[in-house]
Write a protein that binds this DNA or RNA. Structure first.
Lengths: 199, 199
DNA sequence: GCCGTTGTTGACACAGCGCCAACAACCACG
DNA sequence: CGTGGTTGTTGGCGCTGTGTCAACAACGGC
């Protein structure tokens, strides 16, 4: 390990910032917001505590960066627009979602569940943006590229279902991936065919 | 107002505890966990801060009591088991749920969204229990009184959908009650008829 | 080699929490 | 009506964690 309490080293601002951020992502990923002190982050990064504040200002601002990283999903895969009829597209979308979530399950689920503090305005905004992106992906996958506000809201609701269902699978381990898949596919199909026309 | 900084009064332990708790419920309901200090609670209750610790031990323990209160729903209405075919029962259940949520929308939604701190073990447990009760109500309403673990998990997932959809209605105001009702009714019907058999 | 730039440190001040001994309001009892 | 005991209540102490800032030192240019 490179934890060697060696001499003080001087790094480029971007590099140091990146290093501290990655350490913070790891710590906040395994423990909650209140259980991780800026001293913990500093020590784990082999750095003085004041430096954390120098780069990120406030603990909350650091945390905002952390959940932004956690909620950032490999966007490349999102561009794969499946062809075929509606059930086929729904099926492909659900598979894609489950792949993404299971890949970095711990960090993504932890962050999307507000991983430490909800009720805070800024944190809620970052999470809401991530849900918006997921909702956009859903709407695009089922062929509603330019939805109205109501339709978008319904898509966000569906994302809420997807999150809570994924949690039963990945965190509680009481549902299998197949069960989750069928649940999400069936409900999405119903929503598209029966509910979206209300918007 | 009765904020009169009068002489120190001596109250029965239960009464004092109840008074502090109600003040705490109000404060935590309008602001987040970190934004409310025990000093705020004490001052709003016209009491020394030490007394808060005396009755509730820890700020977190106080907060646990608060969200327990917030998540406690008038249980009487839950016993009304609607008769009729499945679509009718589903419809009645959704109406009941929307009534309950809209009645004390702010506190209930605030609490169920982890209203201040998630990731904490104890808080999560209390919220999980509330979701379990809601899931039980759903299963009972659709005529599955004694479900297995998987079925219960699916019901919890549906509660997640109900919560996120209610939030689009009550907090964001972008969906109407009718739209929410149709969305929740249609998806619940699909889940019961097509998905629950997998469990 | 020296010097300026600037990444980095350590300490100071302050807020919030848990704890506890002293205080005083209230209730028996004489 | 006094008086003493019970116990609800207070104020302050120590601790932890955070934000800020002046001083320090590593690195690159001259």
């Amino acid at each position: 390990m490179s934890v060697e309490a060696g001499q003080r080293r001087r790094l480029e601002p971007d590099a140091r910032r990146e290093q501290i951020l990655s350490v913070a992502v790891r710590l906040f990923g395994e423990r909650g917001y209140a259980d991780v002190s800026t001293t913990d982050v500093a020590r784990a990064a082999g750095v003085a505590r004041g430096l954390v504040n120098h780069y990120f200002g406030t603990k909350k601002e650091l945390y905002l960066e952390v959940i932004r990283v956690m909620l950032t999903v490999p966007e490349g895969a999102l561009t794969e627009l499946p062809e075929g009829d509606l059930p086929a597209r729904v099926d492909a979308s659900v598979s894609w979602f489950l792949d993404v979530v299971s890949r970095h399950s711990r960090s993504w689920l932890a962050a999307i569940t507000a991983g430490g503090m909800a009720g805070d305005t800024d944190v809620d905004r970052v999470i809401a943006e991530a849900i918006d992106r997921a909702a956009d992906a859903v709407l695009q996958a089922v062929g509603r590229p330019a939805p109205g506000p109501a339709l978008h809201a319904m898509a966000r609701s569906y994302v809420g279902l997807a999150v809570s269902t994924a949690r039963e699978w990945l965190q509680r381990g009481v549902l299998t991936r197949d069960q989750v898949h069928r649940l999400l596919a069936a409900t999405l199909l119903t929503m598209v065919e029966q509910v979206f026309k209300d918007a």
